[in-house]
Simulated assay, not measured.
Amino acid sequence: MFLAIHSNEVEIVMWCSPLLYPEKRSKPLAVALPASLTADLPHLREKTVKAGLIARTAAIFRVDEIIIYVDKHGTEDEGELLANILRYCETPQYLRKRIYTISALFKYVGLLPPLKIPSHTVASSLDGIKDGDFRDGVVIKTYKDGSLVDIGLDKPFLVPKKLKRGERVTVKINKTKDSLKLSVVSREEVKLYWGYTVNYEHKGLVDSIKSFNADLVIATSKYGDPITKVFNDMKDAIRKSNKILILFGSPHEGLFEICKRFKVNLSDIAHFIVNTIPFQGCETVRTEEAMLATLSIINIMHYI
Protein backbone atom coordinates (compact mmCIF):
# COMPACT_ATOMS: atom_id res chain seq x y z
CA MET A 1 0.00 0.00 0.00
CA PHE A 2 1.37 3.41 -0.99
CA LEU A 3 0.61 6.28 1.38
CA ALA A 4 1.07 9.96 0.61
CA ILE A 5 0.18 12.85 2.92
CA HIS A 6 0.61 16.44 1.78
CA SER A 7 0.42 19.77 3.56
CA ASN A 8 2.19 23.09 3.34
CA GLU A 9 4.92 21.96 5.71
CA VAL A 10 4.98 18.17 5.57
CA GLU A 11 5.25 15.69 2.76
CA ILE A 12 5.31 12.00 3.61
CA VAL A 13 5.74 9.25 1.07
CA MET A 14 6.23 5.73 2.33
CA TRP A 15 5.72 2.14 1.35
CA CYS A 16 3.87 0.10 3.96
CA SER A 17 4.30 -3.66 3.96
CA PRO A 18 3.01 -5.87 6.78
CA LEU A 19 5.58 -7.69 8.93
CA LEU A 20 4.55 -11.05 10.28
CA TYR A 21 7.27 -10.93 12.93
CA PRO A 22 8.20 -7.30 13.70
CA GLU A 23 11.83 -6.59 14.47
CA LYS A 24 12.78 -4.57 17.50
CA ARG A 25 13.58 -0.92 17.01
CA SER A 26 17.15 -0.10 16.09
CA LYS A 27 17.07 2.72 18.66
CA PRO A 28 15.56 2.26 22.14
CA LEU A 29 12.25 4.08 22.54
CA ALA A 30 10.73 4.83 25.95
CA VAL A 31 7.66 6.67 27.18
CA ALA A 32 7.31 8.41 30.56
CA LEU A 33 3.87 8.30 32.15
CA PRO A 34 2.61 9.87 35.40
CA ALA A 35 1.88 7.76 38.46
CA SER A 36 -1.51 9.49 38.72
CA LEU A 37 -2.61 8.15 35.34
CA THR A 38 -5.40 6.06 36.89
CA ALA A 39 -6.03 8.20 39.98
CA ASP A 40 -9.15 9.83 38.51
CA LEU A 41 -10.88 6.50 38.01
CA PRO A 42 -13.05 5.36 40.95
CA HIS A 43 -12.95 1.59 40.41
CA LEU A 44 -10.22 -1.00 39.95
CA ARG A 45 -12.05 -2.31 36.89
CA GLU A 46 -11.63 0.96 35.00
CA LYS A 47 -8.03 1.36 36.19
CA THR A 48 -7.22 -2.09 34.84
CA VAL A 49 -8.85 -1.38 31.48
CA LYS A 50 -6.91 1.89 31.08
CA ALA A 51 -3.63 0.12 31.89
CA GLY A 52 -4.51 -2.46 29.25
CA LEU A 53 -4.95 0.27 26.63
CA ILE A 54 -1.54 1.67 27.53
CA ALA A 55 0.02 -1.80 27.24
CA ARG A 56 -1.56 -2.39 23.83
CA THR A 57 -0.37 0.98 22.51
CA ALA A 58 3.16 0.33 23.77
CA ALA A 59 3.19 -3.08 22.10
CA ILE A 60 1.72 -1.87 18.81
CA PHE A 61 4.48 0.72 18.42
CA ARG A 62 7.26 -1.47 19.85
CA VAL A 63 8.05 0.65 22.89
CA ASP A 64 11.09 -0.72 24.73
CA GLU A 65 10.49 0.78 28.15
CA ILE A 66 7.63 2.38 30.07
CA ILE A 67 8.87 4.75 32.78
CA ILE A 68 6.45 5.81 35.50
CA TYR A 69 7.28 9.03 37.32
CA VAL A 70 5.73 10.54 40.45
CA ASP A 71 3.92 13.67 39.31
CA LYS A 72 2.09 14.35 42.56
CA HIS A 73 2.71 13.28 46.15
CA GLY A 74 0.13 10.77 47.32
CA THR A 75 -0.10 8.96 43.98
CA GLU A 76 2.74 6.52 44.62
CA ASP A 77 0.34 3.61 45.19
CA GLU A 78 -1.43 4.39 41.92
CA GLY A 79 1.95 4.15 40.23
CA GLU A 80 2.52 0.72 41.78
CA LEU A 81 -0.86 -0.46 40.53
CA LEU A 82 -0.13 0.79 37.03
CA ALA A 83 3.34 -0.76 37.00
CA ASN A 84 2.07 -4.14 38.18
CA ILE A 85 -0.73 -4.37 35.63
CA LEU A 86 1.57 -3.26 32.79
CA ARG A 87 4.08 -5.96 33.79
CA TYR A 88 1.29 -8.53 33.97
CA CYS A 89 0.16 -7.63 30.44
CA GLU A 90 3.69 -7.99 29.08
CA THR A 91 4.20 -11.42 30.69
CA PRO A 92 3.42 -14.38 28.38
CA GLN A 93 0.17 -16.02 29.41
CA TYR A 94 1.80 -19.39 30.07
CA LEU A 95 4.05 -17.83 32.75
CA ARG A 96 1.58 -15.69 34.64
CA LYS A 97 0.56 -18.31 37.20
CA ARG A 98 4.22 -18.96 37.93
CA ILE A 99 5.10 -15.30 38.45
CA TYR A 100 2.02 -13.72 40.00
CA THR A 101 0.26 -14.84 43.14
CA ILE A 102 -3.44 -14.29 43.77
CA SER A 103 -3.90 -10.63 44.63
CA ALA A 104 -6.73 -8.12 44.78
CA LEU A 105 -4.70 -5.99 42.34
CA PHE A 106 -5.34 -8.55 39.60
CA LYS A 107 -9.06 -9.01 40.20
CA TYR A 108 -9.99 -7.71 36.75
CA VAL A 109 -7.07 -8.86 34.64
CA GLY A 110 -9.50 -11.02 32.68
CA LEU A 111 -10.55 -7.79 30.98
CA LEU A 112 -7.06 -7.08 29.67
CA PRO A 113 -6.61 -7.40 25.90
CA PRO A 114 -3.96 -9.87 24.72
CA LEU A 115 -0.80 -8.25 23.36
CA LYS A 116 -0.01 -11.02 20.85
CA ILE A 117 3.61 -9.94 20.56
CA PRO A 118 6.20 -12.52 19.38
CA SER A 119 7.07 -13.59 22.94
CA HIS A 120 3.39 -14.42 23.53
CA THR A 121 2.62 -16.21 20.27
CA VAL A 122 5.12 -19.05 20.58
CA ALA A 123 4.35 -22.72 19.94
CA SER A 124 2.44 -24.52 22.70
CA SER A 125 3.78 -28.00 21.97
CA LEU A 126 7.13 -29.64 21.25
CA ASP A 127 6.08 -30.35 17.67
CA GLY A 128 5.89 -26.64 16.94
CA ILE A 129 9.35 -25.82 18.29
CA LYS A 130 12.03 -24.92 15.73
CA ASP A 131 15.77 -24.86 16.11
CA GLY A 132 16.87 -21.35 17.09
CA ASP A 133 13.53 -20.33 18.63
CA PHE A 134 13.47 -17.98 21.61
CA ARG A 135 11.10 -18.29 24.57
CA ASP A 136 10.59 -16.72 27.96
CA GLY A 137 10.67 -18.95 30.99
CA VAL A 138 10.69 -19.00 34.78
CA VAL A 139 13.24 -20.78 36.96
CA ILE A 140 11.41 -23.30 39.15
CA LYS A 141 14.36 -25.18 40.68
CA THR A 142 18.10 -24.70 40.99
CA TYR A 143 20.97 -27.14 41.26
CA LYS A 144 24.70 -26.79 41.82
CA ASP A 145 25.46 -26.47 38.12
CA GLY A 146 22.10 -25.86 36.48
CA SER A 147 18.49 -24.70 36.72
CA LEU A 148 15.13 -26.15 35.80
CA VAL A 149 13.11 -23.70 33.69
CA ASP A 150 9.42 -23.72 32.81
CA ILE A 151 9.08 -22.45 29.22
CA GLY A 152 5.40 -23.27 28.79
CA LEU A 153 5.74 -26.75 27.30
CA ASP A 154 4.71 -30.16 28.60
CA LYS A 155 7.66 -30.33 30.97
CA PRO A 156 10.40 -28.04 32.33
CA PHE A 157 13.89 -28.13 30.84
CA LEU A 158 17.36 -27.88 32.30
CA VAL A 159 19.72 -25.01 31.48
CA PRO A 160 23.43 -25.36 32.36
CA LYS A 161 23.52 -22.28 34.56
CA LYS A 162 22.66 -21.67 38.19
CA LEU A 163 19.94 -19.04 38.37
CA LYS A 164 17.71 -17.57 41.04
CA ARG A 165 14.47 -19.43 41.67
CA GLY A 166 11.50 -17.43 40.38
CA GLU A 167 13.67 -15.47 37.95
CA ARG A 168 12.24 -14.77 34.52
CA VAL A 169 14.68 -15.52 31.73
CA THR A 170 14.83 -15.62 27.94
CA VAL A 171 16.24 -18.79 26.41
CA LYS A 172 17.37 -19.86 22.97
CA ILE A 173 16.48 -23.39 21.90
CA ASN A 174 18.79 -25.77 20.11
CA LYS A 175 16.58 -28.55 18.75
CA THR A 176 18.01 -31.89 17.80
CA LYS A 177 16.12 -34.94 16.66
CA ASP A 178 15.88 -36.35 20.17
CA SER A 179 15.96 -33.39 22.54
CA LEU A 180 15.91 -29.66 23.25
CA LYS A 181 18.93 -27.86 24.66
CA LEU A 182 18.40 -24.46 26.23
CA SER A 183 20.81 -21.58 26.75
CA VAL A 184 20.02 -18.37 28.61
CA VAL A 185 20.38 -15.23 26.48
CA SER A 186 19.82 -11.52 26.91
CA ARG A 187 16.90 -9.79 25.24
CA GLU A 188 19.37 -7.92 23.06
CA GLU A 189 20.11 -11.17 21.24
CA VAL A 190 16.48 -11.51 20.14
CA LYS A 191 16.01 -9.67 16.86
CA LEU A 192 12.22 -9.53 17.11
CA TYR A 193 10.28 -7.08 19.24
CA TRP A 194 10.09 -8.97 22.53
CA GLY A 195 8.00 -6.61 24.67
CA TYR A 196 8.59 -3.69 26.99
CA THR A 197 10.04 -3.34 30.47
CA VAL A 198 8.46 -1.23 33.21
CA ASN A 199 10.60 1.08 35.32
CA TYR A 200 9.06 2.62 38.44
CA GLU A 201 11.52 3.86 41.04
CA HIS A 202 9.28 6.43 42.76
CA LYS A 203 11.26 9.26 41.19
CA GLY A 204 10.03 12.59 39.88
CA LEU A 205 10.02 13.57 36.23
CA VAL A 206 13.50 15.09 36.12
CA ASP A 207 15.21 12.19 37.88
CA SER A 208 13.33 9.69 35.71
CA ILE A 209 14.62 11.41 32.59
CA LYS A 210 18.17 11.28 33.91
CA SER A 211 17.86 7.57 34.69
CA PHE A 212 16.97 6.70 31.10
CA ASN A 213 19.80 8.86 29.76
CA ALA A 214 18.13 9.68 26.45
CA ASP A 215 19.82 11.93 23.93
CA LEU A 216 16.44 13.01 22.53
CA VAL A 217 13.55 13.97 24.83
CA ILE A 218 10.19 14.90 23.31
CA ALA A 219 7.51 16.47 25.52
CA THR A 220 3.85 16.42 24.47
CA SER A 221 1.55 19.34 25.23
CA LYS A 222 -1.40 21.14 23.65
CA TYR A 223 0.64 24.31 24.21
CA GLY A 224 3.59 22.95 22.24
CA ASP A 225 4.55 23.61 18.64
CA PRO A 226 2.12 22.07 16.15
CA ILE A 227 3.55 18.84 14.77
CA THR A 228 3.26 20.19 11.21
CA LYS A 229 5.67 22.99 12.12
CA VAL A 230 8.41 20.84 13.66
CA PHE A 231 7.88 17.59 11.76
CA ASN A 232 11.03 17.71 9.66
CA ASP A 233 13.22 18.92 12.54
CA MET A 234 11.94 16.11 14.77
CA LYS A 235 12.44 13.57 12.00
CA ASP A 236 16.08 14.64 11.59
CA ALA A 237 16.64 14.59 15.35
CA ILE A 238 15.23 11.06 15.58
CA ARG A 239 17.55 9.87 12.81
CA LYS A 240 20.57 11.29 14.64
CA SER A 241 19.59 10.11 18.11
CA ASN A 242 20.48 6.87 19.89
CA LYS A 243 17.84 6.78 22.66
CA ILE A 244 14.44 8.47 22.52
CA LEU A 245 12.17 9.35 25.43
CA ILE A 246 8.65 10.75 25.04
CA LEU A 247 7.01 12.53 27.98
CA PHE A 248 3.28 12.61 28.73
CA GLY A 249 1.31 14.55 31.31
CA SER A 250 -1.48 13.44 33.63
CA PRO A 251 -5.28 13.48 33.20
CA HIS A 252 -5.55 16.71 35.22
CA GLU A 253 -2.20 18.39 34.63
CA GLY A 254 -0.12 18.85 31.54
CA LEU A 255 3.66 18.76 31.57
CA PHE A 256 3.89 22.55 31.90
CA GLU A 257 1.78 22.47 35.07
CA ILE A 258 3.68 19.52 36.53
CA CYS A 259 7.04 21.17 35.88
CA LYS A 260 5.84 24.46 37.36
CA ARG A 261 4.96 22.76 40.65
CA PHE A 262 8.43 21.24 40.79
CA LYS A 263 10.03 24.56 39.76
CA VAL A 264 11.44 23.18 36.52
CA ASN A 265 11.25 24.66 33.04
CA LEU A 266 9.94 22.09 30.58
CA SER A 267 12.11 23.58 27.84
CA ASP A 268 15.19 22.81 29.97
CA ILE A 269 14.48 19.06 30.08
CA ALA A 270 13.02 18.46 26.60
CA HIS A 271 14.47 19.06 23.15
CA PHE A 272 11.01 19.40 21.60
CA ILE A 273 7.67 20.44 23.08
CA VAL A 274 5.11 19.38 20.52
CA ASN A 275 1.36 19.26 20.03
CA THR A 276 0.74 16.03 18.15
CA ILE A 277 -3.03 16.63 17.97
CA PRO A 278 -3.45 20.19 16.67
CA PHE A 279 -7.01 21.50 16.33
CA GLN A 280 -8.30 18.89 18.77
CA GLY A 281 -12.07 18.59 18.78
CA CYS A 282 -12.34 17.72 22.47
CA GLU A 283 -11.54 20.11 25.30
CA THR A 284 -9.00 17.64 26.70
CA VAL A 285 -7.08 14.71 25.26
CA ARG A 286 -6.52 11.78 27.62
CA THR A 287 -3.02 10.51 28.20
CA GLU A 288 -3.68 7.16 26.54
CA GLU A 289 -5.11 9.00 23.52
CA ALA A 290 -2.13 11.34 23.31
CA MET A 291 0.18 8.34 23.53
CA LEU A 292 -1.56 6.61 20.61
CA ALA A 293 -1.47 9.72 18.44
CA THR A 294 2.13 10.62 19.26
CA LEU A 295 3.57 7.16 18.75
CA SER A 296 1.77 6.89 15.41
CA ILE A 297 3.68 9.95 14.21
CA ILE A 298 7.00 8.83 15.71
CA ASN A 299 6.55 5.47 14.00
CA ILE A 300 6.19 7.16 10.62
CA MET A 301 9.28 9.31 11.24
CA HIS A 302 11.39 6.18 11.66
CA TYR A 303 10.69 5.03 8.12
CA ILE A 304 10.81 8.11 5.90
Rank of each mutant, 00 (worst) to 15 (best):
V206S: 11
V190T: 12
V184W: 03
H6G: 11
K222S: 13
F106L: 07
T228I: 09
I269R: 04
D207H: 03
L163W: 06
K47W: 02
I209D: 02
K164H: 09
D145V: 15
I68E: 02
G128V: 08
L86D: 00
R187L: 13
S267Y: 10
S7R: 01
I238P: 06
E9P: 07
L19G: 13
N199H: 11
A32T: 01
P118T: 14
D268I: 09
K24D: 12
E288A: 08
N199F: 15
Y223H: 13
S36N: 00
A293Y: 04
G249M: 01
F272P: 00
L3D: 14
S103T: 11
M301G: 05
W194Y: 10
L82G: 00
V122R: 08
P156K: 01
K24E: 06
E288Q: 06
I246D: 05
K155T: 15
T121P: 12
D40F: 11
D136Q: 15
I117Q: 06
K203Q: 06
C16G: 08
E76M: 03
P278Q: 02
I151W: 04
I300M: 13
I67Q: 01
S211N: 07
V285Y: 02
F248A: 01
I298D: 04
K177M: 08
R286E: 08
P28V: 01
L255K: 00
V31F: 01
S186A: 12
L29E: 03
I300N: 07
R96N: 06
A123M: 08
F134H: 07
F2A: 15
A270T: 07
L111H: 14
A32Y: 03
L295S: 05
L126D: 15
R261L: 10
E289C: 11
C89S: 14
I244Y: 03
S103V: 11
L295K: 00
R62W: 07
F262E: 15
G137P: 12
R261D: 14
T38I: 09
C259Y: 02
L247V: 08
F61W: 07
E289Y: 07
Y303L: 10
K240P: 05
R25M: 10
C282F: 10
I297T: 12
P22W: 02
G146F: 06
P118D: 08
P18I: 13
V264C: 05
K155Y: 14
G137A: 11
R135F: 09
D64N: 11
K191C: 14
R286Q: 13
V122C: 09
I85N: 03
I244E: 05
R96G: 07
V63L: 02
L86M: 03
V185N: 08
L29H: 04
G132C: 02
R96K: 06
L3F: 10
D145Y: 13
H120E: 10
